[in-house]
Nucleic acid binder design. Sequence first.
DNA 1: CGTTTTTTCCGTATTACTACTGAAAGCAAA
DNA 2: TTTGCTTTCAGTAGTAATACGGAAAAAACG
Lengths: 220, 220
Amino acid sequence: MPNSPIISIVVADDHLFFREGLINVLKSKKRFEVVGIAGNGKELIELVSKHKPTLAIVDIGMPVMNGIEATKMIMAMEYKTEVIALSMHTEEAIIFKMLEAGAKGYLEKNISKEELFIAIESVIDYNQFYFPESSTTSMFRLMKKLSFSPYPKPSVLFSERELEIVSLVCQDFSSKEIASSLSLSNRTIETHRVNIMQKMNVKSVAGMVAYACTKGLVQL
Amino acid sequence: MPNSPIISIVVADDHLFFREGLINVLKSKKRFEVVGIAGNGKELIELVSKHKPTLAIVDIGMPVMNGIEATKMIMAMEYKTEVIALSMHTEEAIIFKMLEAGAKGYLEKNISKEELFIAIESVIDYNQFYFPESSTTSMFRLMKKLSFSPYPKPSVLFSERELEIVSLVCQDFSSKEIASSLSLSNRTIETHRVNIMQKMNVKSVAGMVAYACTKGLVQL
DNA sequence: CGTTTTTTCCGTATTACTACTGAAAGCAAA
DNA sequence: TTTGCTTTCAGTAGTAATACGGAAAAAACG
């Protein structure tokens, strides 16, 4: 999913080396912006409430406040920051608690860059849960199945501007309103609409909004 | 959810008395239409493939073919028939297998009419999983949480005609097209659109489609 | 049977959207 | 540097949708 909005991330882990490594990996993709680094759960919730990031990557075992408690507190905040849990080993009971607390994904610490990216995009772009392949207990198999992506991936790519306009259209704003709110010409918006509808292969706004909803282009 | 489309149902249970009782209860609501009655899994899949019902209410323990196998086969069909499982007792392992097979709900046989109706509407209207309150093991607590309704209930009621038109609008049909496909005047459709938008409190088609998607008025 | 809701239909006017053009500036990749 | 994509803007025209009105038949409900 190129041309996607920036994902701001807060990272929490009590191991300096791992933390730094993780941050470096995240920084290698320009879509990811690390806005905060925490060494324990308390720091984490402070950073999350301060920066309201899109995502928090949270180690489960941390001093002062563990990842489970911290996740619960993050979930209680009004801003919707997603949480992906990190753990050294696959301990089913712990992962379970983390998911109950509200985490949307779980990762072992020895994963590859690629798996990390996939996990983040699954959770953020496609609003799905993410579990590692190694967790093959029956409960996880079932949960994987139940938490399939509700959105089939769109087959075409939309630019950031286009996604912005789609989103505003879905919020019931007219072209004029969108134009003035973005300080652009009405004709610019109309051109975008035409292009968007062509890409979607639909005939009218109705089809455009329906497409956006079903493909998960907008989160309403 | 009054003014909702008819739900066609196939019932499968090997106990005559229970089966008849269930059918009578279903018939007490005019929204439910029992289109088939099966005494075992084999009959069930024949009836489902013949009638393509909205819902199948399936006993787990049946001769010839049990509910789990039958559910798997129903899920493999192209038509999307939902399955609600029935069981005598709450046996976690069995329920688990049933959910893995693709059932969206589970009910004990000693439930009330009201609970049955709620279960059906949860599964059909709101696309959510349904578990009985009595299953309070941690796994079910979590699964309940994960399978919350993605759709907040609409606060207004729409007539069948209105829902029909909403659905067609969401499918990118213009008023003219809808008018001719329903053999109605263009003005009739336009009037409906106005009424619908007033009820939804939106300003344009875009808002209408977005409302329909978020409230689950249409299944796209 | 009366009441209410639903469904049907119309005129007029205005606004919004879509179709068909065309084009220039910016930016990034090849 | 050329190529391509994104973003910006515009004229003209036609079509669709929305905002005001108003109204009557049909069906559902008590």
